[in-house]
Write a protein that binds this DNA or RNA. Structure first.
Length: 586
RNA sequence: CGGGCUGUAGCGCAGCUUGGUAGCGCGCCGCGUUUGGGACGCGGAUGUCGCAGGUUCAAAUCCUGUCAGCCCGACCA
């Protein structure tokens, strides 16, 4: 690639609409250009990087035995109608019609198509397991595309799907993907964590996300510095403490606590009128009961009470993940359930078997023997020393309370910390949801029809480009890892003497003969300063300067990341550069 | 979808308060001088001032509407 003719224009200033470093630098250095919100053109340098990422993903997928194919991006409505996603996906789908008025969509993901392809071609357990993948452009009409190519409405994704006759086969495919993803993300040069994610309603299935660690990442996760546990907030399991002995706990008693509609006021009143011997009352001593209205997929509704320590709020995302596929909203129709006294709701009226028919689920911290201050179901009264398992029972537990930094790690009990990341990959045991909906069954060895079980696995390929840029830059520009740099070496010729350009040509030819991709700055009448700035902005890891040193018979090899350089004789330059690029000593 | 900000040359921006010849820097073209850290001189090209309507002798500027973008939040790979 010759800079004198390369389709490239670098920008001296940051584009006004770019905020995050990867977006700024990819635009400034001439890798991408915006066409429309969340829709980008890949310029020659950017496309080189994208292709190299693709190739790494492809090599590793092939190595695990997955087979590549390619579905259309333009898809008919029907399969998505069958699985319900035509409506479920809502406004996130790009929809269009053909000349006859038939509905189409631009594929946001391809579970339906893969499932139907296997159904179309296979019908025996002998054909399974099989894993298929594609590297393809996806479309999602994001509410808010941002950060350039990091979160686009059109993006390149590798998606793969595994098909197996039984759960053991699914587990195996899942584990293979996990190992393959580790290899892929290691090769791409990421710092990443694997976090436990919510698998949704298909009980017992596994799901993990690969997050590139990034301060301005969009996803928050918690992790344990002691044992390495990491999880999405939605997926954190609160460890249940052991049951307590309550033989010495005094009997429950109802007390007047007027004007205490909030936990804070209740705590004040408790400390003023019923002080404890050992310490002051705190919000965590109270049991707060939050009422929600749950809507099930069949459109039936149910009122549910969630009991949790008074110092915590309900985390809507966690609750939603627990209830999926049902949805919930805050309950406000108190007149319809007269047993519920707003502000003073207690376990006395809660429970599926009681008159109010309000199912009662509590936080896992509410274990047998724990004593609480909670509503007495009478206006202006609370109950003290109400003991779980002695004075009240519940219908079950639910993970709906907010997770906080400092909470105990479910694995080892150490305090959890929070961090942010960018989702780069997701592996997910789908189970039989799509196979059932679309009728993918095979005959097993007994001649009986069994529903196939599936996994789905994704890697954000175009996102990976931005994500690597996000993690590999300095104030001067990009710094690509060797594996995905648009070129192996950037040869910069400076000066006006024809000899430097001839020498640069020689070196370039020598490197290309050895199989390297070389970007050579052969622009005449461009000052050295401009060329140096451009080379640092573009970010090829090894920069070779052919300039004034040539008079003494040397050229300079510079490492973009460290900034360190060394002079080598021009005769041995090619060998020295090859050694540098290949990581061997000359 | 809610809140805030912004739309003027390829890029970054000024001009708008107080209506009257559309500007600056970078980039681009020509000539010359320069060539190790975004050089300099001289000359030049490039505009639907987001769009539509209105007020006015006259609108980038004032009014109304509308579209788009960015940021924060909600939501989402």
């Amino acid at each position: 690639m010759r800079m004198s003719s390369l389709f490239l224009r670098t920008l001296r200033e940051d584009p006004a609409d770019a905020e995050v470093p990867s977006h700024r630098l990819l635009v400034r250095a001439g890798y991408v250009r915006r066409v429309s919100p969340g829709i980008y053109t890949w310029l020659p340098l950017g496309l080189k990087v994208l292709r190299r990422v693709e190739e790494i993903v492809r090599q590793e997928m092939d190595a695990m035995g997955a087979q590549e194919l390619l579905f259309p991006a333009l898809l008919p409505r029907e399969p998505f109608e069958t699985t319900g996603r035509w409506t479920e996906y809502g406004p996130n789908i790009f929809r269009l019609q053909d000349r006859k008025g038939a509905d189409y969509l631009l594929g946001p993901t391809h579970e339906e198509l893969f499932t139907l392809a296997v159904k179309d071609m296979y019908s025996s357990y002998k054909d399974l397991p099989v894993t298929l993948y594609q590297i393809q452009t996806k479309y999602r009409d994001e509410a808010r595309p941002r950060a350039g190519v990091l979160r686009g409405r059109e993006f390149v994704m590798k998606d793969s799907y595994s098909f197996a006759v039984d759960d053991a086969g699914l587990d195996k495919a899942y584990d293979q993907h996990r190992e393959t993803y580790i290899r892929i993300f290691d090769r791409l040069g990421f710092h990443y964590v694997i976090v436990a994610a919510m698998a949704g309603a298909m009980g017992g299935s596994k799901s993990e996300e690969f997050l590139a660690t990034a301060e301005n990442g969009e996803d928050t996760y918690v992790h344990c510095p002691q044992c390495g546990y990491a999880a999405n907030v939605e997926a954190v399991r609160v460890p249940a403490p052991p049951a307590l002995d309550f033989t010495t706990t005094p009997a429950a008693r109802a007390e007047d606590t007027p004007d205490t509609p909030t936990i804070a006021k209740l705590v004040d009143v408790l400390n003023a009128r019923f002080p404890r011997d050992d310490r002051a009352w705190a919000a965590g001593d109270t049991l707060k009961n939050v009422i929600v209205k749950v809507t099930h997929p069949d459109a039936s509704t149910e009122v549910v009470a969630i009991g949790l320590p008074g110092d915590r709020d309900v985390d809507e995302k966690r609750l939603e993940a627990q209830l999926e596929p049902s949805t919930f909203e805050v309950f406000d129709d108190f007149p319809s359930v007269p047993q519920l006294v707003k502000g003073y709701i207690g376990p006395g009226v809660l429970g599926a078997e009681k008159d109010a028919k309000v199912r009662y689920l509590v936080d896992p911290r509410v274990v047998d023997g724990t004593a609480w201050v909670t509503g007495a179901d009478v206006q202006g009264q609370h109950v003290l020393s109400l003991v779980m398992g002695r004075d009240f029972t519940v219908d079950g537990t639910i993970e709906a309370a907010e997770v906080r930094v400092g909470d105990a790690c479910p694995n080892c009990g150490h305090a959890l910390e929070a961090a942010r990341g960018i989702e780069m990959g997701h592996i997910f045991q789908l189970g039989r949801k799509y196979a059932e909906a679309l009728g993918l069954k095979v005959l097993d060895e007994n001649g009986k029809l069994v529903t196939v079980t599936m996994g789905s696995y994704g890697v954000g390929v175009s996102r990976a480009v931005a994500c690597v840029a996000e993690g590999n830059h300095d104030e001067r520009g990009l710094i690509w890892p060797r594996q995905i740099s648009p070129a192996d070496v950037h040869v910069v010729a400076t000066g006006k003497d024809e000899e430097v350009y001839l020498a640069a040509e020689d070196i370039t030819r020598g490197l290309e003969a050895a199989g390297l991709v070389v970007l050579v700055d052969d622009r005449r009448k461009v000052s050295p300063g401009v060329k140096f700035k451009d080379s640092e902005l573009i970010g090829v890891p090894t920069i070779v300067v052919v300039g004034r040193g040539l008079a003494e018979g040397v050229v300079e090899i510079k490492d973009r990341r460290s900034g360190e350089g060394r002079s080598v004789p021009v005769e041995s330059a090619v060998a020295e550069i090859l050694a540098e690029v290949r990581g061997t000593s000359a």
